[in-house]
């Protein structure tokens, strides 16, 4: 599934970044890599962005829905 479909509060692991190099570079820059675990902390109203936290680094990033669709993730049992 993609990050966009993940319900709030879930913990997931990034499996794949399904877009070009540009997207990969900006994800690297934000500190989100393949293999990283993410927690979906919230989502904004009006189909706004999704807020994720990278627990390993404590970084919080807001991703627009279009961006979130490009991240393939799988659930992680807590």
């Amino acid at each position: 599934m993609t990050l966009e479909q993940v319900p709030k509060g879930s913990r997931v692991k990034v499996v794949k970044r399904t877009s070009g190099q540009r997207f990969a570079a900006s994800m690297d820059g934000m500190g989100i890599h393949v293999g990283d675990e993410l927690v979906v902390v919230g989502s904004a109203p009006f189909s706004g962005p999704i807020l994720v936290e990278v627990p390993a680094s404590g970084i919080q990033v807001a991703l627009g829905r279009g961006m979130a669709k490009k991240l393939q993730v799988e659930p992680v049992s807590a």
Binding site: S26, M30, P49, L51, I59, Q60, V61, A62, L63, G64, R65, G66, M67
Partner: peptide, 8 residues
């Protein structure tokens, strides 16, 4: 149009 990608 850049999708939002922003540090909080």
């Amino acid at each position: 149009q850049a999708g939002l990608l922003m540090d909080v």
